[in-house]
Amino acid sequence: MSSTPFPTGPIRSCRGRTVAVVGDDIDTDRIIPARFLKCVSFEGLAAGAFADDRAELAGRHPFDRPEHQGAVLLVVNRNFGCGSSREHAPQALMRWGIRAVIGESFSEIFFGNCLAMGIPCLGLGHDEAKALQAFVAAHPEQELELDLEALELRASGGEAGAAGGEAPFWTLQLAEGPHRMLVSGQWDGTGQLVAHDSELRTTAGRLPYLAGFPA
């Protein structure tokens, strides 16, 4: 479990070990089974991360393997986080230690939940994702460096040489809006929304259902 503080302010980079969870359509019921949702606070959710998959694999799940302890980057495949809107899923991942998720694609609600917590979800192509997962499997202790401003992921120093010559390097995708929000630190948007109260009143004023459909 992580000692890294939860995200605050601008998110520009992230460095550390990586853990890969392989498979398409990994739903939020698998990321955190419903029984862990019986709580009124997100504290303590780390234990629920992938709980049933981990139990089934009896210690062989990536989240249990010693070489991935302390990982801050998670690599996944397609449609990660589909299903339920439960923010408990990214909360469980964050509380386990994850600070960024890199994958082929994400469900929209999961992506939005992560964004609201300052956890970037970054895209990369199918073959690149496979290559990255293979790299992580081969070099589990290698620290990777995520440069969120440049949208690049690279293995630098340490074992990178052992990976053979050139340090591996991946280009990542992130839509412009969320990218700007994260690097500028404006991802925690409640303040911005509250600040537009007069605009909010204007909008409310043109919605007839708010006034009982006046003549």
Partner: peptide
């Protein structure tokens, strides 16, 4: 929506 957005809607109705 997720819980952070529930907070946003409670706070701002948007």
């Amino acid at each position: 929506i997720g819980t952070s957005q529930v907070r946003d809607v409670l706070a701002s109705q948007s």
